[in-house]
Design a protein around this nucleic acid. Structure first.
Lengths: 214, 214
DNA sequence: GTAAAAATTAAACAATTGATTAAAATAATT
DNA sequence: AATTATTTTAATCAATTGTTTAATTTTTAC
């Protein structure tokens, strides 16, 4: 292995195991699991295996650390979606790609949807996040795409039901775990089937005509 | 008005405006809006317009007050559903009744779903609630009903997608409010349309055959 | 190798939080 | 009307929480 690559890898390793990254990683885990109010800075420090004071040394405050992580998570949740919607393919291909992408992302970030929705409901300070999400949904291209998909229903219903059947299984995961309906099969396997069901649901919404929707 | 009725009404009014009920009402509002960790006992006292010590006088502790309210909310969220599922009518009639019931209930309790799902995800102490919900889903009658509706898919998918498209609009409400897709129409009006869309989604899931689901 | 800079630590701070106390006010009982 | 029980209050407690400080250790730069 040549020396340049060796140094690059060392740099990456160092960055991953740096205290700054350790705090970020602990923050990601605890904030998404327990929310802002349910997480203590001491819990983060302990989870990260660092001294409490280092949190403020690197991130100034709990709220600042939270904001950084929240923006990261919002980008993770919406970023790729926006990029894919702008791609120039058929609606079916686009939908398939988004579905695959989301279920993959959610399988490694199962707490993400509940984190985003619960932390933005009662927001004193993190309204910047909600603003970003609104910018995304207000996108003109997305609007016209949805209108084109089915002019009979408000685009809202297409978005909400499409995202809903992808995201809701993860939101309700804690409740349905250890339930016979989930125990039989594993959650991951259920999501493989859900992947195939979502297009059927999308088609159902797209084939709604005026009489049915009004 | 006769004297008995007069006294009954007085009793009801007294109970409604009693400090105990004032604390409960304030607790309901703040806990559902901000969650357990995000709510201070002082906020509850202020919201109720009572002295802080009265909270502990009547309810012993913050956690005890929370548990009472949580059980109330779980009953509100699942109770009627169970009762309706046991009714002896056609599946279509049953579905229609449940849809109407839920949208009505949610329009006056918009924070309810997010409260229940976010408070039961990371639960150190309130696991009793999750147990109750598991009992509900594990119900034998419900299982066989769902198997009968469509033997090709795991009952999980019927439950999750049916409940999801009723509940998810409320979970994501805060994010989509002030968005062009919602602004055009009012949220209540969108829910009137959503009411009519849900049966189409349910039909789509029920008409899935083996090849599609596997 | 040494001085300067950066990172880490233990200890403590001030504010907040859930809870309690003891006294005062109100209501109920006789 | 007097006594007792109940409710309400202001003050305080002890523990927790986010943050800071000042000293120490480690790393970097020359």
């Amino acid at each position: 292995m040549n020396k340049v690559i060796e140094e690059q890898e060392k740099a990456i390793t160092e960055k991953d195991s740096s205290t700054e990254e350790k705090i970020l990683e602990a923050g990601r885990k605890l904030f998404t699991e327990r929310g802002y109010a349910g997480t203590r800075t001491r819990d983060i420090a302990e989870e990260a295996g660092i001294n409490l004071a280092l949190l403020n040394y690197y991130f100034r405050s709990k709220e600042n650390l939270f904001k950084i992580i929240m923006l990261e998570k919002v980008e993770l949740f919406f970023g790729e979606l926006i990029r894919m919607l702008k791609e120039d393919t058929t609606i079916d291909k686009k939908a398939e790609k988004i579905i695959n992408l989301y279920f993959d992302m959610l399988s490694s970030n199962p707490d993400l949807p509940l984190f985003i929705f619960s932390e933005t409901r009662y927001n004193e300070n993190h309204s910047a996040v909600r603003d970003k999400m609104q910018t995304i949904v207000n996108d003109k291209d997305l609007q016209s795409l949805l209108k084109q998909m089915n002019p009979n229903v408000n685009p809202y219903h297409i978005i909400i039901n499409f995202i809903g059947c992808i995201v809701f299984p993860y939101i309700s995961k804690a409740i349905f775990d250890n339930t016979t309906v989930v125990k039989e099969s594993s959650f991951d396997k259920l999501m493989e089937t859900q992947k195939k069901i979502v297009p059927h649901i999308l088609n159902a919404i797209l084939s709604i005509n005026e009489e049915n929707a009004k």
